[in-house]
């Protein structure tokens, strides 16, 4: 569904991605693991049109979207749940969600508003807080909001950047059950995680990114057996 080939992305002179090939099959949860600074966020931001790649290509549902604007990528059906949430702190929870549907407001406003109600049903905590400013929410609630805001674009493919970062274990479990539920409802997911144990419980396929390159590519079974990954991510200490 989503094919990334030979992707190179720079920050000035620094090459953060040095030729990345990743394939995300439809209906699956694909997970990208990797140490800090490996280029995981850079990869997602390049796919989402927030960064322009220097070389390589991104293909979505057979169409070339390399270098497309973020607005165009959203319209094609890809949504990003960014690292550190990035909600609009001084806007109400409701307005945050409506802003998520921005690309749809002109043409399918009614449908977008129906989705808003559906979102409130699925995330009751957001309904309770609908009129509050998003900046007053707890970290976990902000993460729910970031996920719900991305869903408001009605994506067929969801990119999630470390959704468990900084959350309490109970909330992490909730986030992962939402990921599984979304996937079962048909959304393709590309998940970036450092929490390999949790990722193992949901993902169908793994990539390991290291210093801007893919260092491993395999299914969960192969990953659990890989020695390097064993030591770095699934160490007996429990990670």
């Amino acid at each position: 569904m989503l094919e990334v080939e030979g992707l190179v992305t720079n920050y000035g002179m620094i090459e953060a991605l040095k030729g990345v090939d990743i394939s995300v099959p439809e209906g699956r949860i694909t997970c990208v693991l990797g140490p800090n600074g490996a280029g995981k966020t850079t990869l997602l931001m390049t796919i989402a049109g927030l960064l322009r790649p220097r070389r390589g290509s991104v293909t979505f549902e057979g169409r070339d979207i390399t270098g497309a604007s973020s607005a165009a990528v959203v319209r094609r059906g890809i949504a990003l749940v960014p690292e550190n949430r990035l909600v609009f702190p001084d806007m109400t929870v409701r307005d945050n969600l409506v802003a998520g549907a921005y690309t749809r407001l002109a043409r399918e406003r009614g449908e977008a508003m129906a989705d808003l109600d559906r979102m409130f049903e699925r995330f009751p905590v957001l309904k309770e807080r609908a009129a509050l400013n998003a900046g007053t929410l707890s970290g976990g609630e902000q993460q729910m909001l970031a996920v719900a805001r991305a869903l408001m674009t009605k994506p067929r493919c969801l990119l999630m950047d470390e959704p468990s970062l900084g959350l309490a274990p109970l909330i992490v479990a909730e986030v992962f059950s939402i990921i599984r539920e979304l996937n079962e409802a048909g959304t393709t997911i590309l998940l970036v995680e450092q929490n390999a144990h949790m990722a193992l419980t949901v993902a169908h396929h793994f990539f390991l990114l290291d210093q801007g390159r893919v260092a491993f590519d395999g299914d969960p079974g192969a990953m659990a057996e890989d020695e390097v990954i064993q030591r770095a991510y699934l160490g007996s200490a429990g990670g």
Binding site: L50, F88, D90, D95, A99
Partner: peptide
């Protein structure tokens, strides 16, 4: 208005606004 929503979104966080598909 929709336009106003976009203006507020860009004012608060331009990167998040781009993530939401705002030009």
């Amino acid at each position: 208005t929709h336009f106003g929503l976009a203006v507020r979104a860009v004012s608060e966080n331009p990167e998040a606004a781009r993530v939401a598909g705002v030009n």
